[in-house]
């Protein structure tokens, strides 16, 4: 039933400068079901983008297995379309040309690919911009085009690598709402990489939390929110706040420094009767 199945993914690479072997991904296993939205969340440098790159077929894994639709991943494929942080649109193609690109590469004739392309442009709210070039669009519109370009191929799974990290905060909120709407309408299978806790909770059915390097799965958290979702109601929802707090704690626990700090703080709260700092103890009473 699961569309994407990752088992004991382990990835090492040799640092080009130091010559040392670096473990980018320690041991990661999880799966994404058909029509499910799963985010992978972790501190920066924890290897979450590496996981995505392996799934996309851009990077080779060292050991373990990654299967999509029951077939092991060996190379990039339109079955695993990627939405990039940098948009990665083709500047020399019009908006329509960008959306129709994948269909054209697979030999779909013009007469058939144009209506499909237009349908996906309409889905992301870009109708009327067919003849524009990407640089003539705003950042938000460019990323909508990035999403439409992938969905037009009807992939087994859509991979999204921090897709909204390079747009301004207001646009990001709007894009997140648009993405849940699109998800609601089309029910694609989505694997989403982010470091933004709110974003992960708002968008996902489940959130995979990675520990810092060498990364392992700290916990897989199910998001108890109904769909359809919008920011206004989600922000007022106690379940949302509770999940966000839980994930934030998990992330803080994953860092050595954060752990210390958390212990010190909790120590103060729990044992307020005996002051933890010696200087105080000597001075008073």
């Amino acid at each position: 039933m699961s569309t994407l199945e990752i088992k004991n993914l382990h990835k090492e690479y040799v640092d080009a400068y130091t010559g040392e072997t670096v473990t980018a991904v320690g041991d990661v296993s999880f799966s994404v079901d058909r029509g499910e939205f799963v985010s992978i969340l972790g501190p920066s440098g924890c290897g979450k983008t590496t996981v995505l790159n392996v799934v996309a077929g851009f990077d080779k894994l060292t050991s373990g297995s990654v299967e999509v639709g029951g077939k092991p991943v060996t190379a990039p494929s339109p079955e695993r379309g990627v939405v990039f942080q940098s948009f990665a649109l083709f500047p020399w193609k019009t908006v329509l040309g960008n959306v129709a690109f994948g269909l054209r590469m697979r030999g779909v004739p013009r007469r058939e690919r144009e209506p499909v392309a237009r349908q996906y442009l309409e889905l992301v709210g870009l109708e009327g911009f067919e003849r524009k070039f990407p640089h003539e669009l705003s950042g938000g519109m460019q990323q909508r085009l990035g999403v439409a370009r992938v969905l037009a191929n009807e992939p087994e799974v859509m991979l999204m690598d921090e897709p909204f990290a390079s747009v301004d905060a207001q646009t990001r909120r709007k894009l997140q709402e648009d993405l849940t709407d699109i998800f609601q309408a089309k029910r694609p299978t989505v694997f989403f990489v982010t470091h933004d806790v709110d974003e992960a909770v708002f968008l996902s059915d489940r959130v995979v939390v990675l520990s810092s390097r060498p990364s392992t799965v700290a916990e897989i958290v199910t998001v108890p929110l109904e769909r359809p979702r919008n920011w206004r109601s989600v922000l007022e929802n106690p379940d949302f706040r509770h999940t966000v707090t839980h994930l934030t704690d998990l992330l803080a626990g994953g860092r050595a420094h954060g752990e210390e700090q958390a212990e010190r703080l909790s120590g103060r709260v729990d044992s307020s009767s005996e002051p933890p700092v010696r200087a105080d103890a000597g001075g008073e009473s």
Partner: peptide
């Protein structure tokens, strides 16, 4: 950009 093209077949 190269990766995008490759992943679109």
């Amino acid at each position: 950009l190269l990766r995008a093209a490759r992943s679109m077949g």
